[in-house]
Design a protein around this nucleic acid. Structure first.
Lengths: 234, 234
DNA sequence: TACCATGAGATTGGATCCAATCAACACCTG
DNA sequence: CAGGTGTTGATTGGATCCAATCTCATGGTA
């Protein structure tokens, strides 16, 4: 993939640290959250080598919380531990994107089907607001999060905590791909029409139709990203 | 659930250490693998508090690799970090079991459908052998692993590495429940008939039939375990 | 010139040490 | 005797230190 396995150039790390404003109980959680967000949002692209000492200095902590945070990111398949070279941010490849969509195609319809009967007006309102926000928000960087929140709003009443957590994790991972190809193509690739159709089917409590729309939505997104990787030589 | 949040009684930990024979590159990996196996196999039941110092002594290492291993287990939702109380093995509840089955019901049919066209005679042979082994193996403790390997054999040609990894992880988690209720009920609850029907449908390359059998298989298992929890007051 | 050995530097894995925080228990008081 | 309170011990989170190992550059040699 012709990736330069360079270390993060310092200033990038500073930006990562600065962007991580949330309050966390422990330094480990803080570092983990910041790195996770940076990776998922594409600020730390695949192939970036994260050296512990450098991270420790950038975050103003010792290497220990950094190590524990990296371990957790490893368990989430966001980085690979390469002995004596550092923790390397996992590459995003056409193969990985296809995997991600295969998983989402399995999980999300299940969550949607469980959730639809229990959805209330406030959920539909939230979903509608998020669609509108995606239409108007000028920042392409936040589209991924809005998209994720829209999907999760429709699944939120599934009543299966672990299923939802897993789904959200996969959606977050999808952010990496989405952002990747939104940057190259246009925001029209967000398929707002399909979002609206999905919401309409959910409001009509038509589970079969909603699942069909969701399947088509995910398949189209997968095909688009696959095509993107093909033309780009991924 | 009337769980005693006692610390592992030392001798239990010794058994966990002794059972972990595999060779691993680092102490962290060794500790993680040993604890993970012990939790999934039920040797460390839900609610057990794992204190770092105790683990460190039992494994003959310092607290540091223990801490990193615990962090990774936390990321896998096998333990919860409770400040000043230790890492607590997550409870297995009726709710968790239902979640696990909902996830498997979404993932496994997808993996199966992708895999069936690519399965070869050697895969069918392996699956057949595993069914036979489940019939004859006298050790009820190994039934879970055999069951997992049987299922994975049928999914193995799906060609989606992450989907398979996630599926296997959920199957491993299911071991905890399976072992739990196999101990109380009988091995006939393994549904060997359904296993055979699943294999037959796969050999016939009948994706729809195989998926239907798998759905029924998982639904029946979920119902059985739900009933088990209900009668047992879980 | 190409290739291999050697040594210095860098990086991680692990151990030990220190500080902060919480839980439990004993004690005092109304 | 019940309830609140202070103190002690235990346990974790984090920092610093040490050892092992790999990488990479340098230089020597065929």
């Amino acid at each position: 993939m012709q990736t330069q396995r360079q270390k993060g150039s310092g200033s990038e790390l500073a930006a990562v640290v600065a962007a991580a404003g949330g309050r966390h109980r422990t330094a480990t959680e803080f570092v983990e959250a910041a790195l996770k967000a940076a990776i998922l949002e594409g600020r730390l692209p695949g192939g970036t080598a994260l050296r512990q000492e450098e991270l420790a200095e950038a975050f103003g902590v010792s290497r220990m919380p950094v190590r524990e945070a990296l371990r957790q990111l490893e368990a989430q398949a966001l980085i690979d531990f390469v002995p004596h070279k550092g923790a390397v941010v996992t590459e995003i490849s056409a193969e990985d994107a296809a995997d991600n969509y295969a998983i989402r195609r399995a999980l999300e319809p299940a969550a949607l089907a469980l959730s639809i009967p229990a959805l209330g007006p406030e959920d539909f309102g939230r979903a509608r607001d998020l669609i509108a926000e995606m239409d108007t928000d000028p920042d392409p960087g936040s589209l991924g999060e809005l998209n994720r929140r829209f999907h999760m709003a429709l699944y939120s009443r599934a009543g299966r905590a672990k299923l939802l957590a897993l789904t959200e994790q996969q959606l977050a991972a999808a952010d990496r791909y989405l952002r990747f190809h939104l940057a190259a193509k246009g925001r029209e690739h967000l398929s707002q029409d399909e979002h609206r159709a999905l919401l309409a089917a959910a409001e009509a409590r038509d589970v079969a139709a909603a699942v069909a729309v969701l399947h088509a939505h995910l398949d189209r997104a997968a095909a688009t990203i696959a095509e993107f990787f093909r033309t780009r030589g991924g």
